[in-house]
């Protein structure tokens, strides 16, 4: 079931088109990667879902209901550019933000205690934000985002500013939140983390959606059927074993090992190939070369926009 549906949304600012006929489906209890270069319209879309701004045209549905102010309490948002009141104490501030999301003071206190213990930051309650490091403040922000146990979490570059240890901590929390039933929209430029934690993705470029689907399916669609075979033996014998269904792209020899890259066509079957060559040469490894999300991102964005990436738009 879809938790969130974005249907044919348009939004423009003065002369700048931010979103053009954009539709998305975010499945319940999944992690959805919202990808795109700077200025593509991601932040605008996120702001529309958060009801910070409204679409010019089109509709957004939350659990089959038209998005309305009552849904605010069920959404948690961690913006990319984020901050807290510098002069306010950590505890007071967290309580304030929780109450703005509709929690009662006592409930918020209880939950905050749980999270502060979990992140081992109990001692920070009476500290002012300006006394904390950036990473420490980010932890507080993460807690205030998830505190009210929102059905939908929108995390915009949640790992920026974290060291590898805390990045892992947050990653673990995100996966745990999904297990507990949250749906997460995850916007990032860090493609590695996309492959690691996302179930589905959508790629937005220049206000339009240019790619979407399950991460595994997207990668499947972009695989170019290239295999690398490493073997010891006679290159001639290897070549003879290939029939026209394969194309040799590259070969190199390091000591007695030969590395060959071949591309398979539709009618070819790597298993059949192996059956033949296995009697001719000693096969050390066979690997399918799959494109990373990073490659797919660059390839797709440059297809649409071969020129250099545009400057960041005003509405970042």
């Amino acid at each position: 079931m879809d938790l969130l549906q974005v249907k044919r949304v348009y939004k423009s600012y003065a002369e700048h088109k931010a979103l053009h006929n954009l539709s998305l489906h975010v499945k319940e209890q999944s992690i959805f990667g919202l990808l795109g270069p700077n200025g593509a319209g991601k932040t605008t879309l996120i702001r529309i879902i958060n009801q910070i701004t409204g679409p010019d045209k089109g509709e957004v549905f939350f659990q089959k209901e038209k998005l309305a102010p009552k849904h605010i309490a069920q959404i948690g948002y961690l913006p990319e550019e984020r901050g807290l009141y510098k002069k306010m104490k950590v505890g007071e501030q967290a309580l304030y933000l929780a109450q703005l999301k509709g929690m009662s003071k006592s409930e918020a206190k209880k939950k905050l205690k749980y999270w502060f213990e979990k992140f081992e930051i109990d001692g920070w309650w009476d500290k002012k934000i300006e006394e904390l490091s950036k990473g420490m403040a980010q932890k507080i922000q993460f807690i205030t985002t998830v505190l009210h146990e929102p059905k939908l979490l929108i995390l915009d570059e949640p790992f920026s500013g974290f060291d590898p240890i805390n990045t892992n901590l947050i990653k673990k929390e995100i996966l745990e939140l999904r297990e507990k039933g949250s749906t997460i929209i995850f916007s990032t430029h860090n493609m590695e983390s996309v492959e690691e934690i996302c179930d589905d993705i959508a790629l937005i470029n220049k206000s339009k959606k240019i790619l979407e689907g399950k991460v595994s399916e997207v990668k499947e669609a972009f695989k170019s059927n290239i295999f690398e075979i490493v073997f010891v033996g006679n290159m001639m014998a290897f070549s003879n074993a290939l029939w026209t269904a394969f194309e040799i792209l590259d070969k190199k020899q390091i000591e007695n090992k030969i590395y060959v890259k071949i591309r398979a066509t539709k009618s070819s079957d790597v298993n059949e190939l192996l059956k033949i060559i296995i009697s001719q040469v000693q096969v050390l490894s066979v690997n399918e070369i799959t494109p990373s999300m990073n490659d797919i991102f660059i390839q797709k964005v440059q297809e649409v926009m071969p020129e250099t990436l545009e400057e960041e738009a005003d509405f970042e």
Partner: peptide, 9 residues
């Protein structure tokens, strides 16, 4: 301080 975006959500 950029807290405004959190609050207006």
């Amino acid at each position: 301080s950029r807290i405004v975006e959190i609050i207006i959500s």
